[in-house]
Computed example of a mutant assay.
Amino acid sequence: MKVRIEWKYRSAKGVETSFTSEEMTAAQGVFIAEDIERTKRVKELVFIDMYDDSIWTMKEMKSYLKSIETEPHDITVYFDGGFNVGTKDSGLGCVIYYKQSGKSYRLRQNAQIEGLVSNNEAEYAALHLCVQELEFLEVRNMPVRFSGDSKIVINGMSGEWPVIESELVSWADRIEMKLKTMGIQAEFELIPRKENFEADRLATQALKGIEITGTSII
């Protein structure tokens, strides 16, 4: 969950004003809010959920963080797809970073598939692979950031660009339906190709017939 803190400050002489923080994770927000409260100058402090503008008290936010400790959270997904024009094979790469039970993990998965018609379709298929992996992790009702270097996919899924090609519409619909069913609050981020090197490498390895799968503590 991404939040911002809003609090009312009261000076020693009773002068009041309000402050709003920058966006941050819920855990960072609680840490900073506790530091603010130690000033003894806080009249009121709440957290605003950046997803739906809902308001949370300190008690509610701490309870929420406690409830998700044993579930995958703070999730960032990297995806990439490659397409071999000669063989018509596609390579899909997926990297998922998440936290669970006080530890940080990295999941890597790739796949080679047939029957796609373009690199753009391979990119959508790679995103779909990532959503499937999230389902295997039993991710539910969580915010997830999806990062990729495909403008077609990122802008299409975020609604910035229309999705026109029928094969891409089909993938987009399947992905959106799965995200809705899982209650995932998706944020799509376009990143430079060099920042997507892990997923890109996995996609390339898949095209070469090298299978990669596994989860490690980082």
Score class of each variant (00 low, 15 high):
Lys66Tyr: 09
Gln112Glu: 11
Ala126Ile: 09
Thr181Ser: 13
Ile152Leu: 03
Asp89Lys: 15
Ile152Trp: 00
Cys130Pro: 08
Ile5Gln: 07
Phe146Glu: 09
Asp89Thr: 13
Asp149Asn: 04
Ala26Arg: 07
Glu135Leu: 06
Thr181Val: 13
Gln112Ile: 07
Ile96Gly: 02
Lys8Val: 13
Glu187Met: 04
Leu65Met: 02
Ile210Met: 14
Phe79Asn: 08
Phe83Pro: 07
Trp171Ser: 02
Val131Asp: 02
Thr204Gln: 05
Ile184Arg: 05
Glu165Asn: 02
Gln132Asp: 10
Asp35Thr: 14
Ile154Met: 03
Ala122Gln: 09
Ala26Trp: 12
Lys208Tyr: 04
Glu123Pro: 04
Lys59Leu: 08
Glu69His: 10
Ser11Glu: 06
Glu114Met: 11
Leu92Trp: 15
Thr17Arg: 06
Arg108Ala: 06
Arg4Asn: 06
Val46Tyr: 03
Glu37Ser: 05
Glu23Ser: 02
Ser11Asn: 05
Asp35Val: 09
Ser54Tyr: 08
Leu45Met: 12
Arg106Phe: 05
Ile212Gln: 10
Ala199Gln: 03
Leu107Lys: 09
Phe47Ser: 00
Ser104Gly: 03
Ile217Trp: 11
Glu34Asp: 14
Glu123Thr: 00
Ile68Pro: 00
Lys8Phe: 14
Pro72Cys: 00
Gly214Thr: 13
Glu167Gly: 11
Ile55Asp: 04
Tyr124Asn: 07
Ser150Trp: 08
Gln185Phe: 08
Leu107Ile: 15
Ala172Glu: 12
Asp149Thr: 09
Val77Ser: 03
Lys13Cys: 01
Val85Ser: 12
Gly209Glu: 13
Leu134Pro: 14
Ile55Glu: 14
Tyr98Ala: 00
Gln112Lys: 13
Ala33Lys: 02
Glu22Tyr: 10
Asp53Ser: 10
Asn110Ser: 14
Leu92Ser: 09
Arg38Ser: 13
Leu45Asp: 07
Lys194Glu: 15
Ser54Gln: 02
Thr87His: 05
Glu71Trp: 12
Pro143Cys: 01
Ile164Phe: 02
Asp35Met: 12
Arg201Val: 02
Gly82Thr: 11
Val30Thr: 06
Thr20His: 10
Lys62Cys: 06
Ser104Gln: 15
Ala122Cys: 11
Cys130Arg: 07
Met142Val: 00
Lys194Met: 07
Asn84Lys: 10
Glu138Lys: 12
Ile210Trp: 12
Glu165Ala: 01
Ile184Ala: 03
Met182Thr: 05
Ile154Arg: 00
Glu121Arg: 04
Met58Ala: 01
Ser67Gly: 11
Asp35Glu: 08
Glu16Cys: 06
Gly148Ile: 14
Ile48Tyr: 01
Gln205Asp: 07
Gln112Leu: 06
Glu195Arg: 11
Arg145Phe: 09
Asp53Cys: 08
Asp200Met: 14
Ile175Arg: 03
Glu60Cys: 03
Met182Phe: 12
Glu69Lys: 12
